[in-house]
Design a protein around this nucleic acid. Structure first.
Length: 411
DNA sequence: ATTCAACCTGGT
DNA sequence: CCAGGTTGAA
């Protein structure tokens, strides 16, 4: 069934299985654009946003209702006939099932994690539908090389900027708000485009900082090892295909291959393993995850100051999380990570409490993009007003207000 | 084998 | 000083 007026098709899917608003903006992929929609007052479950993503040959547009994913395919050439459009949508549907890994039952996993872990149990209802995307390894690798010592907002700008600079525009499309403004969409550039000699200097001038060399040298390594372009203009380059083959080898072997690239350490390698190479139990440990482990999972360390992430400690944390969450530990980690993301918090969920709540002025600053989700999400009855400076995971631990404050003191 | 400063840039 | 770190040299 297709809605003839909008061109969207419907894929039945409970919201519990996938929350686009969370998943597309929680720092897995950095190339989705979200457009706010005019809400239909007649229909309480009308989509709040449209999300768009540019693939090699098409732009995929998504919306979500309580019961469906609505999807639409746009390709460059004008006026496809009904049959062509049907074929394209069928292809897009296959892509969607693969990209969102819809054969994995997320509800079942949440159940499992909740039964194993009290901390998870306490946040799962407010952060449902967070699943791992199955991304293209090449794009994912470069994106996470950009992520080192960086924040999500700037990573997003850098990845957009990469696409705009190094791959030609695929097509332009009016934004869904009816303003008449058009956006232009670029696919992610292939390795050969970033292996070109002057890329490094150009990226520097675009504000990539020291990551510019990493990106260029990684692209160059790939192209030199596996070749740049085969005959068909339209398909993947050999190095992209080779990266995909890492899905078929062991986690350890795949990680060893990834670590050969410049700008790729353990953490970035693990992100690629988890997010695009099907290694579901890999937990990328960053300072953020480290702090969560200390505060809520009894790992040693101090919440004050900055602690070095040694390889040994990294392993200990991985082991701990796999022990707690099991075979899909990496997926569970993503839920916890998202629950503490500030950038995620502003997503149009109505504030239950008055914004005039003054007291927060002297709040000890917390590192990173975290915030007090409890303030704007429905607050559980057990945790009243103190919640105004507690993160979701803090609430989870049932700490007293005093304890929370205590644990937050730094320096 | 371990520890540690330096690294680009932008935001608090 | 910190951001979803990595590198190369003590």
């Amino acid at each position: 069934m297709t809605c003839s007026s909008t061109g969207f098709r419907a894929l039945p899917l409970p919201i519990i299985q996938l929350s686009l608003a969370a998943v597309l903006k929680c720092g897995q992929s950095f190339r989705w654009t979200a457009y706010p929609l005019k809400l239909d007052p007649e229909d309480a479950s009308s989509p709040t946003h449209e999300y768009r993503f540019c693939l090699r040959d098409r732009v995929v547009c998504l919306r979500q209702t309580a019961t469906n994913i609505l999807y639409r395919t746009v390709q460059p050439d004008p006026q496809p006939n009904a049959n062509q459009q049907e074929l394209r949508d069928a292809q897009t549907l296959l892509w969607l099932k693969d990209y969102f890994q819809l054969d994995v039952d997320l509800a079942l996993l949440y159940e499992e994690w909740g039964s194993r872990d009290k901390v998870f149990l306490s946040i799962q209802d407010r952060f449902s539908g967070i699943r791992m995307l199955r991304q293209d390894p090449w794009e994912n690798l470069i994106s996470f090389i950009c992520s080192s010592n960086n924040n999500i907002s700037r990573i997003t700008k850098m990845v957009q900027s990469l696409s705009k600079e190094y791959s030609p525009p695929l097509l332009s499309l009016p934004t869904p708000d009816g303003s008449g403004v058009k956006d232009t969409y670029h696919p992610f550039p292939p390795p050969s485009a970033l292996a070109h000699p002057d890329v490094s200097a150009r990226l520097r001038s675009l504000g990539f900082g020291y990551r510019a060399e990493f990106i260029h040298r990684t692209a160059k390594m790939l192209v030199e090892t596996h070749g740049d372009s085969i005959q068909p203009q339209d398909s993947d380059e050999p190095s992209e295909q080779w990266l995909r083959t890492l899905r078929d080898i062991s986690t350890e072997d795949a990680r060893a291959e990834l670590l050969k690239f410049v700008g790729v350490g353990r953490k970035v390698a693990d992100c690629v393993l988890l997010m695009s190479l099907d290694k579901t139990d890999v937990v990328p440990v960053d300072t953020h995850v480290h702090q969560i482990a200390i505060k809520h999972y009894g790992m040693k360390g101090s919440t004050k100051g900055k602690m070095n992430m040694t390889p040994k400690l990294y392993e200990e944390l991985c082991t701990k999380f796999v022990q707690v969450w099991g075979k899909y530990a990496g997926w569970a980690h993503s839920v916890l990570f998202t629950s503490d993301l500030k950038s995620f918090a502003l997503h149009g969920i109505p504030q239950p409490n008055s914004p005039l709540s003054s007291p927060v002025k002297n709040r000890k600053k917390r590192s990173r993009e975290m915030t007090d989700l409890v303030r704007i999400l429905p607050t559980p009855p057990s945790t009243p007003s103190v919640s105004e400076s507690a993160t979701a995971t803090e609430i989870a631990c049932n700490l007293s207000p005093a304890e929370r404050v205590k644990k937050r003191i730094r320096k």
